[in-house]
Design a protein around this nucleic acid. Structure first.
Lengths: 151, 151
DNA sequence: GTAAGATACTCTCATGTGAGACTAAATTCA
DNA sequence: TGAATTTAGTCTCACATGAGAGTATCTTAC
C-alpha cells in the first residue's frame, strides 16, 4: 500500500473511517436480533453480556469495560434493575459502588441471546477460513492495544 | 476458535462488540486532530473527505457512501455551504439533487488534514508489518461485502 | 399527456447521549 | 484524627441524531 502523505487520502484504507462504517453496520444488523425480540437497548445488552461473562461488577467497571459513558450506564442499569434483569448488592468495600450481577431472569435472557449471537457471527465470518479469522482477531487486538497505550 | 453455541459468548471475540469499541476509540482519537483545530464535526469531515476523493456528488450519494442519515447530511451540508467550504451547483439531470463539491477553501482545508490523517494512521499501524496490514484490510473488505449482501 | 407513485431534500419533533454540577463516600495528607 | 481531595454515581441541561411529515421534482403507467 503506497500512501502519499502529502495530498492523498484513500478512505477505504483509512481505518477510523472504514472501521466505523463496518462496525456501525454490524452493530445495527446484530442489534435487530435482540432489540424488538427482547426489548433491550444497545447499552442494556452490553451490560448484560459483560455481567454474564465477567460476573459481579460495579457501574464504573462496566463503563471502562464497554467504553460507555457513566450517564448511559447509570440509566441502563436503572432500567435493568426495575425489570429485575440484574441485581444490585451493597459493596462492603465501597458503599458508593454497588455490585451488579445478573438475576435468574437476566441469566435466562442472556442464555436465549447467546446462541443467536454465535449463529449470527458464524454467518458473518463464513467467507473466512479459520486461519484468516484468527489472524484478523490478532491484528484487531494489536490495534486495540495501540489505542489504549496512547490514551 | 471453538465456540459453544449454547451458552458461551466471548465478547473479545464477538465482532459487533469489539469492533464497535475499537472503531469508537479510533474515531474519537483521530477526530481530536480536526475538531478543534479546523472546527469540523465528524459528519462535516466525512463529507469533505468523500468529496475530495470522489468529486462532485449529491447529498443522497453522500448518505449512501458514508452511511449517514439524510438529516445529518442535510445539516452538515448546510453548514459547510455557509462556511464556503463546499459549493452547490444545480444538477441538470435532477433539480431536486444539487451537485456538491469542494470549494477552493474546502480543498485547502482538506489538504491540511490529509497529512495529519496519514501520519496518524501510520502511528496506529506501526506495530504491524505491511503483509499483516494488507491481510487485515482484505479481511475487512470481505466482512464489509458480507454485510452489504445481507441488507 | 396526465394522474399516481417514487425520490431528494428540508424541517419538526422525540429521544439518547455526554458534559458538568451535585451528593455521598472513600482516600490522602498533615 | 480532621481537612482537603478524589471518586462513584445521579441528575440536569444542551446538543446531535433519526423518524416521519411535508414540499418539490422526477418517473411510471395508462
Amino acid at each position: 500500500m503506497t500512501t502519499d502523505n502529502q495530498t492523498t487520502l484513500d478512505l477505504k484504507q483509512f481505518l477510523p473511517y472504514s472501521l466505523t462504517n463496518i462496525a456501525m453496520q454490524m452493530s445495527e444488523q446484530f442489534s435487530e436480533l435482540y432489540q424488538q425480540q427482547f426489548d433491550l437497548t444497545v447499552p442494556q445488552w452490553r451490560i448484560i453480556a459483560n455481567l454474564a461473562q465477567y460476573g459481579e461488577r460495579t457501574a464504573k467497571e462496566l463503563c471502562d469495560m464497554a467504553q460507555m459513558d457513566k450517564s448511559t450506564v447509570s440509566r441502563a442499569v436503572k432500567s435493568l434493575l426495575t425489570r429485575n434483569l440484574i441485581i444490585a448488592k451493597e459493596n462492603p468495600e465501597d458503599k458508593r459502588a454497588n455490585l451488579l450481577s445478573l438475576s435468574v431472569e437476566g441469566n435466562r435472557l442472556h442464555e436465549q441471546i447467546v446462541p443467536l449471537a454465535n449463529e449470527w457471527q458464524a454467518g458473518l465470518v463464513s467467507d473466512l477460513d479459520s486461519q484468516e479469522l484468527k489472524q484478523f482477531m490478532n491484528t484487531l487486538s494489536k490495534l486495540s492495544n495501540h489505542l489504549n497505550k496512547s490514551v
